[in-house]
Write a protein that binds this DNA or RNA. Structure first.
Lengths: 338, 338
DNA sequence: TCCGCCGATGATAACGTTTTCAAAATGGGA
DNA sequence: TCCCATTTTGAAAACGTTATCATCGGCGGA
């Protein structure tokens, strides 16, 4: 049973034990060609006894087909990233694919190249790039031609097939909602973006201009809730700020804490709306109004697009879904009826 | 440049173009054996021109060395899991390894077996199992012998090398802290555990018995903050509950919301202490007292253990770290001086 | 000048599997 | 009974790389 040491049993070992030829074992295992019941049993018995497990490298070498897909992302712990990854993994697993994850820590060219090289040092069937921020966008540009690639992001695509969450529509809906509540304008605390086109900022800006109200300067917070917290404290001193849209829910929570510590009440004094639909948002006090996005579905759609690329040629080029505004407690009318 | 179609260039194509033999190309690429500068240049030029990329499957097949490690986990979105995964990935990437992730959704034998089979259908150098819950523990038992395996968990190991976060010590510290504040006893809202030995519950129980106070029944919440929220509402009606330790911070946040909605103030009426050190905890209102754990470090240590297994035989068998109690606003003395 | 040594190079084997192709076995019809 | 079609089986080739081994060249020492 516990045959340690030496080397893993090969198909030849199984064949010898079962008293059949090597190809017969292969046929039993892959099920590609029928084999007589009697031999099939002998082979399966031998497989069990030896604990034989096909060598994927050899199999991949001869078939040329890979069953591994690479995911490139800048971070795997943030809510949106982790959920998208989960969706990709689930869809891939159900299709018999394995997911390899490689993190791209910065958008510095050397680091990006190193990460891409590492990811591609292994034979992969395709690549999914989480293009939510600069590192993701940089990685996309460094992937070699001829490799099936899909990007998952919140904006429109450029070249490669994209699975998209329509950030712009979500941000517009949230901004329209706040304006409809009577707020004079809406401020925006931004997350990093993948390029010039920032879907969330675009939607926010578009809603404001369409309503013919002033567009205040964007407040950049990066990914850190700490920074949003500081912004919250700064904003607390300004009476003209009555509604804030945040690039994601973590930022919104940090911001609310900053406002709270500085004595501003949410939503009585300031309305705060987040983005993403973080599962903790509904337990927050006050519960967070947010633009809910189905990241897991984004991941599944990303893999589906990639599957289309791998299979028949008639693959879809994009897959888009609209987010949904979820109104909870952190938003309301402005303090002085606007 | 963009040579699509046909098949990827092989080392033979490079050799022919550079006018050298196949092994010489291999030597240039791997750097294993010195090659004359003139030939090296020719080879590198040919590599560039053809866009040659070594076939990892062939390489893996002949060397027998794998540069892929598999991670088995039941979920990749929860804070502890995601952070541990991040630590593993980081350490692996720095060592030139790639991380494959396979999710085990339930502890049902068939599902576990399928996931393990999928993960091992690819040749891997070793496996890290996130053994925080039943699916992880089940996976650990289904891995074949002879494969380097490390478990990362919050409890002690059994057989395979373990990287550990000392849950027991953390839970004891938190419970001692609450008892020291004057609480008559401390209730415990539990997360799922990987087996009979639940580190957090053990530490909590040990601290209570050592202080000779009553040990209330464990309140099981699973992983869902929703369930903790309900428990919070239930507990709100009980005056004897003045201090609650939660199995993780998400649960604590759900619980606090439930208490809040039912009119109980935290920490004035009830003290709540979480577990894990979720980054959002400090922004919560009230900011969450918690037992902070360094999951990323746990991941790095897991990989280090695995590296020891892969390299020389004198590998460490365990690696343990103690968590740290971080006192914030959600805990304080009981309402009526105890 | 010759011998032996060392470094660079190339031919060939090996890794473990699937695929191709031919051979053997089986079955059915005349 | 014989022959052909069909199914099952096995031998050998192929995948792309690295490892092994022998060969070739140059160089230093006698």
């Amino acid at each position: 049973m516990a045959r340690s040491s030496t080397r893993a049993p090969s198909i030849a070992d199984v064949a010898k034990l079962a008293g059949v030829s090597v190809p017969t074992v292969s046929r039993v295992i892959t099920g590609s060609v029928p084999v007589s019941p009697e031999r099939t049993d002998r082979v399966l018995a031998a497989v069990r006894e030896l604990g034989y497990r096909p060598n994927g490298a050899a199999r991949a070498l001869v078939t040329g087909r890979q069953s591994v897909i690479a995911v490139l992302a800048s971070n795997t712990t943030r809510y949106g990233y982790a959920s998208t990854l989960q969706g990709i993994e689930e869809a891939a697993r159900l299709a018999g694919f394995i997911v390899m994850i490689t993190v791209i820590e910065t958008d510095e060219p050397a680091a990006v190249q190193a990460a891409v090289d590492l990811a591609l040092s292994h034979p992969v069937a395709g690549v999914v790039v989480l293009k939510f921020d600069p590192p993701g966008a940089a990685a996309l540009h460094r992937l070699p031609d001829g490799l099936p690639v899909v990007a998952a992001s919140g904006g429109r695509g450029d070249g490669v097939p994209h699975a998209v969450l329509d950030d712009t529509a979500g941000a517009m809906a949230a901004t329209d909602y706040l304006l409809g509540l009577g707020h004079r304008t809406v401020h925006y605390v931004a997350v990093p973006t993948s390029g010039r086109r920032a879907g969330r900022a675009t939607g926010w800006k578009r809603a404001l201009t369409r309503a013919a109200v002033e567009v205040p300067p964007v407040l950049d917070a990066g990914w850190e809730p700490e920074r949003a917290y500081e912004i919250g404290r700064e904003l607390a001193g300004r009476d003209d700020v009555t509604a804030v849209l945040c690039g994601n829910d973590e930022l919104a929570m940090g911001l609310m804490r900053g406002l709270h510590e500085a004595g501003r009440r949410v939503p009585a004094d300031v309305s705060v709306v987040g983005f993403d639909g973080h599962p903790m948002g509904r337990f927050w006090t006050p519960a967070l109004t947010t633009v809910e996005q189905d990241f897991a579905d984004l991941g599944r759609r990303s893999f589906a697009l990639l599957g289309g690329l791998l299979g028949a040629g008639h693959a879809a080029k994009t897959s888009s879904a609209a987010p949904r505004l979820v109104v909870r407690e952190s938003s309301g009318p402005p303090p002085a009826a606007g």
